[in-house]
Nucleic acid binder design. Structure first.
Length: 118
DNA sequence: AAACTGACTAATA
DNA sequence: CTATTAGCCAGTT
């Protein structure tokens, strides 16, 4: 009986000790219509203080992967800006489609939409 | 190995 | 409220 093959769609990234996979599994637990912050995901993945690492992991995420990356926002409840400005709109639309509302300044109410895992 | 970078955050101004 | 700063730490060059 052989051990299960470690599925990895993107071998080019140096996924040290499966840290990315732990991050992905946390993000996968965020329910529809809820959002979490980078720092929160890092903490739940057992790597407190590694918020940026969460950003790296999501950045390296292949499209084909079943991970709701759009539900991860920054501590201000905003879509984190990145190189391509268009993605901000895309992420926001995905969330609005799930029922997450944004105010006029592009911010969500974390008190209301923030994920509170039990 | 040193320097640079970044989908971060909290504290200040 | 926005802007800046310092701390953070792994991935990349």
């Amino acid at each position: 009986m052989t051990s299960p093959p470690p599925l990895r769609e993107n071998p080019s990234v140096s996924d040290r000790d499966g840290a990315y996979e732990r991050i992905y599994s946390v993000v996968r637990r965020i329910p529809r219509g809820r959002v979490a912050t980078y720092g929160q995901v890092a903490r739940l993945a057992g790597m407190p203080g590694h918020a940026r690492q969460v950003g790296y992991a999501l950045h390296a995420l292949p499209e084909s992967r079943d991970v709701p990356w759009q539900r991860v926002l920054n501590a201000q409840g905003r879509v984190s800006p990145r190189a391509e400005p268009d993605w901000e709109q895309i992420q926001r639309q995905l969330l609005e489609r799930e029922g997450v509302r944004f105010d006029t300044s592009g911010r969500t109410d974390l008190e209301r939409y923030g994920w509170r895992p039990r």
